[in-house]
Design a binder for these strands. Structure first.
Lengths: 334, 334
DNA sequence: CTGAAAGCGCTTACAG
DNA sequence: CTGAAAGCGCTTACAG
């Protein structure tokens, strides 16, 4: 389709506007240098001819690029989608073009996504890395390109990283339930080898020891599955019937745990408190209310952008940016 | 960063491999035409030099492009995210590069997204249109570019469109509960002016009349809000206490309705059946089970790809492709 | 398979 | 502001 029509170039625009090709190019790049009259004529010509700026040609000639790759490991996670959307908006506002790519938690797809984006001359890569991303690979990319990681830290990598303060998240969540006088508390997380999970567990343990409480247990269930969390909780409860509080790694796990607690049909005087360390946008609409730690995706997007900007300007950004998190308190006794 | 290093070109590769520039270009484009020995030498040189194919240059010279824009109105909807991921995978497998862009249900963002992607020389646009997309605008784009719409139909537009059989979805869902002998049935949808909602309602009405039942009511609640659905249901129930079945437009609304039913504390012999016409991936993990209509995103992605392929080959694809849907039966009495 | 040549649409100095 | 010129990295015939 677009092959049939001969494309309109700046030469055509220049002819029509009665100015030189250079002037058109000047308007298209740094528009403040062109006088009012020429500007009007050029804009009119562009409109009449339906001229479309060719960024491929511009990028090739100038060796610049305003394309930023956003590589997301799990786009079906509403938090990640929200973050990607927010990032895209932030980049757009600075004249940059976001290109979101989904790797579906697949390492090969992540590798090929970065390779492809290089061929498209991306100026920077914002990566939410898949779980088993290798630090060596990341450092190789980072040495030659502008790369930052998001939401997840790749251990021992030198690439700048922006992530929520997971340790604070679990700490504040745990403190919240401990303040209510519970004493038999468990943590239910997932993928405990990930740096995120380790940070969550660490915040949990710190809070427990600050209250001089030995946590009952800390257990992992399979990846983001409410059903798995439900079963995990039921097993834990069987072995620890004195359990009266559960700190969950995120809202999905919390949902599973809450479902499990409902299924126990506990007497009215026996409650088990549940709190989540990681709010997921669309899960807030659930029947039951839940105290949860909210991660501000706009703030993460903003911080990420600042780091990317520093990279683009060849200054050295902080290697790690922790973004604050906030506990949203709701009725969390089940 | 990438500006400092002088880039490696096919000329460098050709020199190193001891072949001509043309041969390298040949390998990079249609590789079957290059002999085994040359191929090995070239691949070795590419590897040693860290050569990166420059798609901007290639696209500019050849006037071809393998970039496909995927423009999604709501990336935080897990179904849309799943669809985008699936589409990206399908495109990748055919050597095309997907560029996902989120418009966040904002018409201006959608317009500028398409404009930007044109500047990047996208070969086609796959659009999940925002609600108030104008048919005229879409037809203008479609006249000059390869454009298809997904999941939502823009009324009176000539652009090819791929979407689930919403009418069948609500029909099969409604028939399912009617077969259980209910007689007082309501439909709860959202945004009833959208073509999707109209199709859902039409399927519902058809099923009711096939059972010679006059539905109690059909009501809209605000956009995808479980809480709003909950309140809407409670109001409806107050006015129609004989209600014993509810057909919901999607899982989120169904969740709200189920929560409302729970809050009624109905006697054990009184149940209200709930069914959903539109399954949303991450909502399947809910405490309660729910019969719901599953939309196969892989199938939609595949069909969309076929339509795009036809457009790229300048043949005329079907203007409308309806993808089959399936009722997933679970215990749906609440 | 090679090699020289033209050209895709732009940017970037530069002299006027 | 103009205008001519060079060049970004590739593809595409074409004659050998």
């Amino acid at each position: 389709m677009q092959n049939t029509a001969k494309s309109v170039t700046i030469i055509d625009v220049a002819k029509r506007a009665g100015v030189s090709k250079s002037t058109v190019s000047l308007l298209l790049t740094k528009s403040e240098k062109v006088g009012y009259k020429s500007r009007q004529k050029i804009l009119k010509a562009i409109d009449e001819l339906g001229y479309v700026y060719n960024r491929d040609a511009a990028a090739m000639r100038s060796k610049r690029s305003n394309l930023i790759g956003i590589i997301i490991n799990d786009l079906t996670n509403p938090l990640m989608a929200e973050l990607a959307t927010s990032l895209e908006k932030t980049l757009n506002e600075s004249g940059l073009q976001a290109m979101i790519v989904s790797t579906n938690n697949n390492l090969e797809l992540q590798t090929s996504a970065v390779k492809n984006l290089k061929e498209y001359n991306a100026a920077a890569f914002i990566i939410c890395p898949v779980a088993n991303t290798c630090a060596k690979w990341l450092d190789t990319q980072s040495a030659k390109h502008n790369v930052i990681t998001l939401m997840r830290e790749v251990p021992f990598s030198a690439a700048p990283c922006v992530l929520p303060d997971y340790k604070k998240a679990s700490h504040v969540a745990t403190m919240h339930v401990l303040a209510q006088g519970v004493s038999n508390i468990a943590f239910i997380g997932c993928e405990l080898t990930m740096s995120e999970s380790l940070a969550l567990q660490s915040g949990f343990n710190t809070a427990c020891s600050q209250h001089s409480i030995t946590p009952l247990t800390a257990i992992a269930c399979s990846h983001n599955q409410a059903l798995s969390a439900k079963n995990t909780f039921l097993n834990t409860y069987k072995q620890n019937p004195q359990l009266n509080a559960v700190v969950c790694a995120n809202d999905i796990i919390a949902q599973g745990v809450i479902a499990a607690i409902h299924s126990l049909n506990l007497p009215a005087n026996q409650t088990i408190k549940v709190v989540s360390c990681h709010h997921l946008p669309n899960y807030s609409v659930m029947p039951c209310s839940l105290s949860t730690v909210v991660i501000n995706t706009d703030e993460i997007a903003k911080r990420s952008f600042l780091v990317v900007q520093e990279l683009l300007q060849n200054t050295t950004p902080p290697v790690k940016t922790l973004v604050n998190v906030n506990l949203q308190i709701r009725d969390s006794s089940q």
